[in-house]
Design a protein around this nucleic acid. Structure first.
Lengths: 244, 244
DNA sequence: CAGTGGTCTAGACCACAAT
DNA sequence: TTGTGGTCTAGACCACTGC
């Protein structure tokens, strides 16, 4: 087997700017100020648009943060977020954070499309939709939207308003414990709503986690979609070799 | 616990365009043509830049593909890619694809920084760096860069040129089988090189997989970084509840 | 208030595909 | 050759921060 030839790709100008900036910021500590977009444009003999294109990628990678009206700064390092079949609170604490939650919505809606399919329900069946903003050390980490069958978990919204932990409510009120889950991981641009909630920009890359969890009986328990800031989080999972 | 008020975020114009396009393309089959950027700009009374910003997000989400000189089209649906501790070839076949590989590089380099740390080696120790383009049904899926200790696996590059499967070489030649791994998952923009290899655009969002695998003895075997097209792939993993 | 990043425009030129 | 998407420019105006 020989080694393939790869034609060197033509380098866009913004990428030259990006590499220049990467070198320049490599040794700066978090919080340092970076020159303004207009300064960089003039210094590098390019337009502000081109500089911004380079900055957008560096922000997407979690190297820089921009604050409107203030400036551009070196970002804090990324957080490593373990994927375990436990609640957000337990995951956060395993990671050394203090977890908190803001309830954004708790309502009864009709299941359609993917939600119905994931929960083994007919189209139009009643489901609860619970939307929560998850924070670690008071910094927004993720927007979570859970769907659960309304028939299987009557009065759920009432309980969830009194007790933040959904897994606790499921266990203590309904005697249900999720024991396994299928987890889907993708990337997608932030909508203006998620961006606002998470303090980032619309269109910035997110890590999207879909969790489809089941009880020991095989009964589907919940279908959750969580949006994490891709510039701040790296997921970590443990794998074992398949049984022979 | 009450429900938090969320101020409605101001909607950027490009997002209005995006929502308009989403509705418009919702029912179109894969491969259908979408109006040109200039047509959309005039039709929606906006600039081509703003239209392009909306298109960029729809491409990032895997809804559209653009081909320079040809036009913009509805994309094929995303592929679900299982994360198991098996080779790319086995993963592909479990998924119903025919896997193939192009060897891009197989060289001996010095370990530095993360590579040295992950392989429990001193800075500057010899390591093999093996870079491969992975294809499923002849479509490029991922660029994989593996690092392995040169002292532990002598003559590795010689073997890898004759036998594509690294795991086979490890097992048959060195008697080593990776049994567990830590897997890191993040998102990052494509570099021009990865973009060229994978047939996408520089800056487009990628799913980046880092795999740190160990043998039963606990000895680190390899450190692999794989870049997958975020617009074409969703990862899927199975989770079990933690042992009580 | 001055200066920052955020958004949008109008237009130029290039690279590439289809004809 | 024509028309597509890809890149880049110069500049306008807005929203926000911090003095």
């Amino acid at each position: 087997m020989t080694i393939a030839e790869v034609q060197a790709p033509r380098e866009p100008k913004y990428y030259t700017v990006k590499r220049h900036l990467l070198e320049r910021i490599a040794t700066l500590p978090a919080g340092s100020v970076v020159p303004t977009e207009r300064e960089l444009a003039s210094e590098l003999s390019t337009s502000r648009t081109t500089v911004r294109q380079a900055l957008v990628e560096l922000v997407a990678e979690g190297r820089l943060v921009r604050r409107q009206g203030a400036g551009t700064f070196i970002a804090d390092p990324k957080i490593t977020w373990p994927l375990h079949l436990t609640s957000f609170t337990e995951q956060a604490e395993a990671n050394g954070f203090v977890a908190s939650t803001t309830l954004l919505a708790a309502e009864r809606v009709r299941a359609e499309g993917e939600v119905a399919a994931r929960l083994d329900l007919a189209e139009g069946a009643g489901v609860f939709r619970i939307e929560r903003l998850r924070l670690a050390d008071d910094r927004p980490m993720a927007v979570e939207t859970s769907h659960l069958s309304a028939a299987r978990f009557p009065q759920l919204t009432r309980h969830i308003r009194r007790q933040q932990s959904l897994y606790t409510v499921l266990r203590e009120t309904y005697g249900v414990v999720p024991v396994r889950a299928e987890e889907l991981i993708a990337t997608a641009p932030a909508s203006p709503r998620e961006a606002t909630l998470l303090g980032t920009d619309p269109g910035s890359p997110m890590l999207v986690l879909g969790r489809h969890s089941r009880a020991a009986s095989g009964e589907p328990v919940e279908w959750v979609t969580s949006w994490y800031r891709g510039d701040r989080v790296t997921f970590i999972a443990d794998l074992s070799a398949p049984r022979p």
